[in-house]
Design a protein around this nucleic acid. Structure first.
Lengths: 225, 225
DNA sequence: TTCATATTTCGATCATACGTGAAATATCTG
DNA sequence: CAGATATTTCACGTATGATCGAAATATGAA
């Protein structure tokens, strides 16, 4: 029965904590260098290199050489979908320790995911939009409602989108949030309005004092940090 | 970074050829005994038992004890979805022999899945039922329509079912078909009417000449084999 | 009860593979 | 060119885990 040999080998490839961390770090589609991934996974550069080679050989990653740097990225979104499918049945994320690094906290607080808002803020924002009736949550997607369409125009996002909106799962929060082009437009508009801005830490987002008050005033989202 | 520990451990659980074969064998929702799975995977009963224990502990399988037999089955369809997601990027494996190919073909044609009709016939039949307006396909389920309810009664299936009907995915067809109790009832009725019958090969279904003409006449389903 | 079947537990073997130090290769900088 | 940085390759210790023989447990049959 070597019928499922390929499936098993791919699963085995994912089934290592260091490699899972690598894949998860690349899940937003960004490319990272071998050194960065070595630091993220907290293993030696040799070990990271070994894992990266295996992931490339296994077809999960592609590599792009730029000078002495090697940029690794997911070879396709299907890879991210596998991890997401596993995350669905994975036991809930461990309880956060009280003493966790400020950086981890901030990253979890607000993150960009394929250029749209994710993390706690993304989840809270999506929840608020659904509660206001702007979006309707379905089994696998969100749908923009007429009132939502109107709100989007008033908010400054032009769209005549009527297709289902991808529903993403936040890996740390295990909750849903909107994805796709609309989410990107909304995030861009939020940046324009200076409610949010890119933080110093890679992929992190900071909320301005204006944003803080606006999120609370308009969407009843209280930010505590 | 034990954030992705759970994901990695589940992937590692799938990442063994014997265990993948077990999971794939149970993918249609059927329950098999430890002995059957030992024979399918071609490992000793001890080895199979060890793997099964791990899969149950990992939450991928559930076990039901009946006398001296232990029936194992997938704990949820999410497990099947993981395998399917991996299969998407796994290179297809070559067919071993012509004989196996013939058997695979027949199995692909019509298969029972949770005692309901699957395979090509199941998919075609479901498509026809949706097209006739008897069922409405949603994101993750089907809904019985009033006209569908009426048709069911005329067809000889008594039901006052209004809950969503599970939507199953056929692995070989990659298309959807109805599942759940209603599908079982319909399949039973099809057997009663002698449109279909159990084939010689395990889990296979043969269509009678009556069934062949009826499927074509009533549902515009042409069977070529 | 006695025997057969189904399944698990224990113990031992063996292969795989993760991780790292050391060293090699390649690129950038001054 | 020399030195620093990025990354890989090699060699090796170690650990995990897949497999199976032997034995134990539980159920069904005679």
């Amino acid at each position: 029965m070597n019928m499922y040999k390929n499936i098993a080998s791919i699963a085995a490839l994912i089934g290592d904590q260091t490699r899972t961390t690598i894949l998860a770090s690349l899940a937003d589609g960004k490319a990272l260098t071998a050194g960065e991934l070595s630091r993220i996974t907290k293993v030696s550069p040799q070990t990271a290199s070994s894992h990266l080679t295996k992931l490339v050989d296994g077809g999960l990653l592609t590599v792009q050489i730029q000078g002495r740097h090697r940029y690794y990225r997911l070879s396709s979104s299907s890879v991210a979908e596998i991890i997401e499918a596993i995350a669905k049945i994975a036991p809930p994320s461990p309880i956060r320790s009280l003493r966790e690094s400020e950086q981890a906290k901030r990253l979890r607080f607000a993150r960009t995911c394929y250029k749209h808002l994710a993390g706690e803020l993304g989840v809270a924002f999506t929840t608020a939009l659904v509660q206001k009736g702007y979006f309707q949550e379905g089994e696998e997607s969100y749908q923009l409602t007429p009132s939502g369409s109107q709100w989007l125009n008033e908010f400054g996002v032009k769209t005549n989108h009527t297709e289902p909106i991808p529903r993403h799962i936040d890996w740390t929060e295990r909750r849903h949030h909107i994805g796709g082009p609309i989410a990107v437009c909304i995030t861009r508009r939020l940046t324009e309005l200076e409610w949010i801005a890119e933080g110093e830490i890679r992929r992190s987002i900071v909320v301005s004092s204006l944003g803080r008050s606006m999120f609370e005033q308009e969407f009843q989202i209280k930010l505590w940090s």
